[in-house]
């Protein structure tokens, strides 16, 4: 099938629709000039035209809107951002969406957090965030999520970090009470992470169960250092932020 062929088919199709029903056969005899394949194609389309009924007449846009509303849209799956190929979404939060991605340069899996444009639209705020984020990249501590890279691709800002298997402290708490010893162990590891960060002048600003990951091997990892700064409203808050004592 070629574009020219389709055009011929279409012309005969529309002309046939203008004929009286009992004249269509005779019309096709003339119009198709003995080309049986052409004639069968036009006849197939005319039959489909009769039968299609409500086929695709209801737009799927309403479904798209509901998917968007529910935050279930995975537009980025399969796309490449920077040198990361996105496989699937693994989390959504106020600070952006987290995707499972493959670092095509290093050949390893990574977690890619994409910052919403409403946070990155403010140049001043973005600059402060980037300064702090670069400092976080330098943090090296077993209880702090290792950040590989802070990057930008066509105004999409992203943070690539190590991929952690396990659950958040929030998910753990939803499952049921923690033993005292378990809770103390988590608290010690979190405190250790925060102490190391404070040593280098970095304040987390948003410590909460959602930002604490528990690995199956017992390691606790604190996520999202400094990102809270980006979400603050335009009015400058004092350093130390909400809920964080210095």
């Amino acid at each position: 099938m070629t574009p020219a062929r389709l055009q011929t088919i279409e012309e005969i199709f529309h002309a046939a629709l203008d004929q009286e029903p009992d004249q269509v056969g005779a019309f096709l005899d003339t119009a198709c000039e003995g080309d049986e394949v052409l004639r069968r194609k036009v006849e197939a389309l005319l039959a489909s035209h009769q039968r299609a009924g409500s086929f695709i007449e209801t737009s799927a846009a309403g479904i798209a809107t509901r998917i968007i509303e529910n935050g279930q849209a995975d537009l980025l799956v399969g796309q490449t951002i920077g040198h990361y190929k996105i496989s699937k979404r693994i989390g959504t939060g106020g600070m952006g969406e987290v995707y499972l991605a493959t670092d095509m340069t290093a050949g390893r899996k990574a977690a890619l957090k994409l910052l919403p444009t409403r946070f990155t639209g403010d140049a001043e705020r973005l600059k402060r965030f980037q300064q702090e984020a670069r400092a976080v990249v330098g943090l090296n501590h077993p209880n702090i999520l290792t950040v590989y890279e802070i990057g930008e691709d066509h105004s999409t800002h992203y943070i690539a970090s190590e991929l952690i298997e396990g659950e958040t402290l929030r998910q753990r708490l939803m499952r049921g009470r923690m033993e005292l010893s378990e809770a103390v162990d988590v608290a010690i590891q979190v405190a250790s992470a925060l102490a190391a960060a404070h040593e280098t002048g970095i304040v987390h600003r948003d410590i909460k169960p959602e930002n604490i990951m528990l690995r199956p091997d017992g390691y606790v990892k604190v996520l999202d250092f400094g990102i809270a700064k980006l979400a603050e409203s335009g009015s400058r808050r004092g350093y130390g932020g909400r809920g964080q004592k210095r």
Binding site: E10, F13, L17, A44, A47, A52
Partner: peptide, 26 residues
Amino acid sequence: VFAKAWLYTMNCITRPDRNDEARMTN
């Protein structure tokens, strides 16, 4: 009108199970 008929026809080819009546005729 044309695209709808074309897509519907393609549909009957790729998924004949979905539209037995149309397949019989088409």
